[in-house]
């Protein structure tokens, strides 16, 4: 994955506008967070292959970045994004890695279901 460059990522977000796409959205601070530090409140959420259609999508911020997708009746949103990749299957993978390089958030968009 490469560090996010808005001028490269925004056009790819725009490519999926108005199409039925599959979404992977995930946030995590890891299953071990409260094991290593009992003061840490472990929380996360995950949706894989949510089928959506967005009318507008935008990535913004000074890094880490935020991305929002406007869907018919609401929004999909992720913050803390640092890296991106358009993979061999033309899926837009965006992720946020913390200072240790551990994944903390992911937002991915694909025209075909994720395996």
């Amino acid at each position: 994955m490469d560090p996010i460059d808005i001028s490269k990522v925004q056009p790819i977000i725009d490519r999926f506008v108005g199409k039925d796409v599959y979404i992977h959205l995930e946030t995590t601070n890891g299953a071990y967070a409260s094991h290593f530090n009992e003061k840490v409140f472990s929380a996360g959420a995950y949706i894989r292959n949510g089928k959506i259609n967005y009318t507008r999508g935008k990535i913004t911020g000074d890094g880490p970045y935020r991305a929002g997708l406007k869907i018919e009746l609401g929004w999909i949103y992720a913050e803390g994004l640092t890296h991106w990749e358009l993979d061999a299957k033309n899926r837009l993978l965006m992720a946020g890695h913390d200072t240790d390089g551990k994944l903390a958030v992911a937002l991915q968009i694909s025209e075909t279901p994720f395996e």
Binding site: M1, L93, A95, H97, G101, K102, L103
Partner: peptide, 18 residues
């Protein structure tokens, strides 16, 4: 599949990790 370590800098991603 849901591992958080991707290498630093990342050499894997959520989809290639498995």
């Amino acid at each position: 599949e849901m591992g958080r370590n991707m290498g630093n800098p990342p050499f894997a991603n959520r989809e290639s990790l498995p």
